[in-house]
């Protein structure tokens, strides 16, 4: 990769959802869905967000795309003209040109496509909305996009029900690419797909990235999938990033006890590797009512007194390796072998 350029720089991002109760819908509390999250994504790389259900992955992604407005924090995005803008604070009226440059791929290829519209309508929709090209140019562009994602241009007149899950996900990808975006946010793009189809879509995403110089923010809970696509990985727990580093390092030499437990829990497709697993007891903390100190302490096998009182900060313990744990420097944790 050439000298790194930050395409996205997220600083202190927070999104709290109010909890309302009763007839008057009084606010009785807050879900701290995303709580002081900072990271950056370089141009051309893939950063993955992983963690258990409810840890705030989707909310983070939606804040970045300004599908929802964050409670506080900045998301600095470098536009294709080279200027850097804070998407989090931009007035709604000025979002449109930026939205073209950031696109989303969704988890569910079944519900995200309108069944009453043809493939052409679906893929050309962003072109129409942004008044790009004449009708003939759009037909050509859609044909090109369909070829790019491995579908036949002749399919243009068909409706989505005639396609399998994998093909529908390709349609979703074609639509996301229509306006030449620089950032693709993919929220669980393969988790609804079958194993063999999953492999095809992951390969397609890798190929498109190289071909079109795309940058991916990849949201997933499946660590095996994440390993296949990411340059770097950020692990989230109850609204916070607890560890972030290069993929290889995160998998082989994790430094946060939660990462270690997650890696250990992944079933390995080899019966000879039936190792003694670390089974995390209990459940994920409640984001509306998190525990004191380190949010992970009730489930952490390494917890000490300090963990119950003081909240650890995300620190760079080695160049490029960020960990939020009081004991990160002293613990020796287990990763997965090659």
């Amino acid at each position: 990769m050439e000298s790194s350029v930050r395409l996205l720089d997220v600083k202190g991002l927070r999104k709290f959802f109010p909890i309302r109760k009763g007839f008057l819908k009084r606010e009785v509390g807050q879900v701290r869905a995303v709580d002081d999250v900072s990271f950056h994504v370089e141009k051309g790389e893939t950063l993955s967000l992983v963690g258990e259900s409810g840890c705030g992955k989707t909310t983070t992604a939606r804040c970045i795309l300004r599908a929802i407005t964050p409670t506080s924090g900045q998301t600095l995005f470098r536009g294709q003209d080279g200027s850097v803008v804070d998407v989090a604070s931009l007035p709604k009226s000025q979002l449109r040109p930026l939205r073209r440059q950031m696109q989303m791929i969704f988890q569910d290829p079944f519900s995200s496509l309108n069944p009453r519209r043809t493939l052409f309508d679906i893929v050309a929709e962003p072109l129409v909305a942004n008044e790009v090209g004449t009708r003939q140019e759009r037909v050509e562009r859609v044909a090109e996009l369909l070829r790019l994602v491995g579908l036949r241009p002749e399919y243009m007149r068909r409706y989505p029900h005639a396609f399998s899950g994998g093909q529908r996900q390709r349609i979703g990808i074609a639509r996301a690419l229509a306006l030449n975006p620089s950032l693709i946010v993919a929220d669980e793009p393969v988790s609804a797909l079958d194993v063999s189809v999953q492999a095809q879509i992951l390969n397609l995403m890798l190929r498109l990235q190289a071909q079109l110089d795309l940058t991916y923010l990849f949201v997933a809970h499946d660590l095996s999938v994440v390993k296949h696509v990411s340059d770097r990985v950020a692990v989230m727990y109850v609204g916070k990033i607890v560890e972030m580093t290069e993929t290889q390092r995160l998998f082989t030499a994790p430094r946060h006890p939660y990462t270690e437990a997650l890696l250990s829990a992944v079933p390995k497709p080899d019966p000879r590797l039936r190792a003694h697993r670390i089974v995390l007891e209990g459940e994920v903390a409640d984001a509306a009512n998190p525990p004191s100190g380190c949010y992970f302490h009730p489930r952490c096998r390494y917890a000490v007194d300090a963990c119950r009182q003081e909240t650890p900060r995300l620190e760079e313990i080695e160049p490029g390796h960020f960990v939020s744990c009081h004991r990160a420097r002293e613990l020796t944790l287990r990763g997965v072998g090659q």
């Binding site: 893939t46 194993v195 492999a199 095996s224 296949h228 340059d231 497709p269 072998g337």
Partner: peptide
């Protein structure tokens, strides 16, 4: 074929999977 196509946590980072 099925066994070859599964993403594995043991795999090398950023490699294409046989399909």
């Amino acid at each position: 074929a099925l066994l070859r196509s599964i993403p594995s946590i043991q795999a090398t980072v950023r490699t294409e999977l046989p399909t």
